[in-house]
Amino acid sequence: MTARRRPGRPPGAPRNIGWLYVLPALAVYGVFLLWPLVRGFWFSLYDWDGISTGTWAGLSNYATVLTDPGLRGAFGHALILVVFYAILPCLLAFLLVAVITRTRVRGLALFRTVLFLPQVVAMVAVAVAWQWMYSADGPVNGVLHLLHRLGLPDWSRGWLGDFTFALPAVGLIGTWVELGLALVLFLAGAQRIPGELYDAARIDGAGPFAEFRAVTLPGLRRELAVALTLTSVMALRNFDLVYVTTKGGPGGATRVPSYEVYNRTFNTGEVGLACAIGVTLAVLVFALTAGIGRLAEGRGEAR
């Protein structure tokens, strides 16, 4: 019995040239992302005001990023915003999904659209709207004044001008914006979970929390990783919301790395330091997204 010959490449046929199809995309990626990143790193090694000739500074700008209290505070504020932009929206979205999977919700499409609407509104418009809502005569303080008349303490204040509450006030705007994104991702993932798993859990007497922990959460691990990645990156690179609402105030209470890049470049003329802040922020974003991806992959393999 003779072995069958495997069909080979005909003589003169071109080799595999599939990589040529992705070459234009790689060129665009390199020109508009990699090259600016390399140039930004190169500028960060100089003391330069953006106009005159720069002087070599080595890694001194990065030492300033690590030792300057104001810059360290800006990175700390960014990590606090991760809680409001990523963790809180995901927790609230999980709660809503747990309720939706156990009950029949009428008008779910409209409900989902309304919650997702902040994602398609320009962040500048969102910032202006919430700046009015947080104002002295805005709806937030109006509701608090009404509660005060009913006997509760007077909690009204100038939210965006308060040293203690300005950063949480900005963070809550991010929670409102990112909740819809997390909810849409989780609802899409929940629709892929077989209904038999929920039926089996209910037959076994599982309550809402046990059902969520045993069925919903394991089935949404990948969606959770995507949601945490997108919302965390949004929190770390947040600029327009801070710039419009507080401009980093009061007294630097809401300054974040992206705002410091703008401030050091256009206000104080420290372009080299601004580039060092940007590169450090990029490294932080890469590390955080890689950690989230590794955590998701590890859990997926364990499952």
Rank of each mutant, 00 (worst) to 15 (best):
F239A: 01
G252E: 07
L217Q: 08
G142E: 03
A129C: 02
F43I: 14
K247Y: 12
F209A: 15
L71A: 07
P14H: 02
L34H: 00
N141R: 02
I80K: 15
T280L: 09
A210P: 03
R112W: 07
R112Q: 12
F266H: 08
W176G: 09
G272Y: 01
L33T: 15
Y259T: 08
L26S: 05
L167T: 05
A166L: 05
T53H: 10
V22G: 00
P194V: 09
F32K: 04
L144H: 03
A57S: 15
P208R: 12
A276S: 04
V285G: 03
L71G: 08
D199G: 12
L167A: 06
P7H: 12
I173Y: 03
V177H: 10
A282N: 10
L150V: 13
T55A: 09
I203C: 15
L108S: 10
L241F: 01
Q119R: 11
S258F: 00
L147W: 10
C90G: 10
A214T: 13
T64Q: 13
F209M: 14
A235K: 00
T55L: 11
V256D: 03
V215D: 05
L59K: 07
S135T: 07
L147D: 04
G219A: 09
A27V: 13
R6L: 14
G73L: 09
R5D: 12
A129T: 10
A63D: 11
Q131F: 06
W159L: 04
L45V: 08
Y134Q: 00
L108M: 15
A296T: 14
A98Y: 03
G272V: 00
Q119M: 14
E297M: 13
A188H: 06
I100K: 13
L45F: 06
S44Q: 05
S258W: 04
R157G: 03
L79T: 12
E301R: 13
L281S: 09
G269D: 09
A190F: 07
R294Y: 14
P250I: 06
S52R: 15
L91I: 12
I173D: 03
F75P: 00
F41T: 12
V244F: 07
R192Y: 08
Y262L: 13
M1D: 10
G138H: 01
F266Q: 02
T268M: 09
A296H: 04
T245N: 05
A190C: 08
R72F: 11
E178Q: 14
R106V: 13
P168A: 08
R192H: 13
P69T: 11
T2V: 12
G40Q: 10
L71N: 06
V244Q: 05
I292Y: 03
A287T: 15
T55P: 01
G248N: 04
D240C: 02
P14W: 03
V105A: 11
I100L: 11
L230N: 06
I193L: 00
P69E: 14
F32E: 04
G291S: 15
C275W: 00
G107A: 02
A57R: 15
L183R: 08
S52P: 07
E196H: 12
T67W: 09
G18P: 02
G54Q: 05
N61P: 09
F239Y: 15
A274V: 06
E223C: 00
A182L: 10
